[in-house]
Amino acid sequence: MSAAKQKAQAVIADNAVVVFSKSYCPYCRATKSLLTEQGADFFTMELDQVDDGAAIQAALEELTSQRTVPNVFIDHKHIGGNSDLQARKGELPGLLKAAGALKA
């Protein structure tokens, strides 16, 4: 298994909510805004700001069949991208609560 794949899997395993993002991406900003509005405690990895970002993005594609960012995981499960997250807005509070990812 590649180091990038192991790193991606470790980040997903260690955090209730993860957004693999790029700092300049408007869809990523929309995702992070929605999670912030919902009071979510989430971990963001900006793939354009880490040395192995391209390798991690390729590893995520292997894991999820999704190449694009944002790539969102809640409770260690792949949710998808921004449009997938926005489409689940109604169930988001429940998902975040179940994941233990709501700020106190």
Rank of each mutant, 00 (worst) to 15 (best):
A101G: 05
G90T: 12
G80M: 00
M45D: 06
G53V: 08
F73C: 00
V50K: 07
H78C: 03
I74D: 02
L60C: 03
E37F: 11
I12M: 11
H76M: 12
Q49R: 14
T31M: 03
G53S: 09
T68V: 11
M45W: 01
K89V: 13
E46S: 00
D84L: 07
P93N: 10
G39H: 02
D48A: 07
A4E: 08
V11N: 03
R88E: 11
V17R: 00
L92I: 04
F42H: 11
S33V: 08
V72L: 08
A58F: 06
A104Y: 07
L85F: 06
F42P: 03
A104P: 15
K89L: 07
Q86W: 11
C28A: 15
A98Q: 15
A87K: 12
V11R: 04
P93V: 06
T36Q: 14
Q38G: 03
I79K: 07
V17T: 04
A99N: 09
K7E: 12
A59F: 07
A87D: 14
L102C: 04
L85C: 01
F20S: 01
L95C: 03
R67F: 08
I56K: 12
K89N: 14
C25R: 01
T31G: 11
F42G: 01
V18E: 08
A99P: 02
I56T: 09
L102R: 02
G53P: 08
K103L: 13
L60A: 05
G39W: 05
T31N: 03
V17Y: 05
V18D: 09
Y24E: 05
D41I: 09
A54D: 14
G81I: 06
V18G: 05
T36M: 11
C28V: 09
D75F: 08
K103Y: 05
E91H: 02
G81R: 00
D41K: 14
A16D: 07
S33E: 13
A16T: 11
G53Q: 11
D48L: 02
K89S: 15
I56E: 03
E91W: 04
A16W: 10
Q38E: 14
I74S: 02
T31D: 09
S2A: 11
M1A: 10
V19T: 09
A59V: 06
A8H: 10
A55S: 15
T44R: 06
A101V: 04
K22V: 09
Y27F: 13
P93F: 10
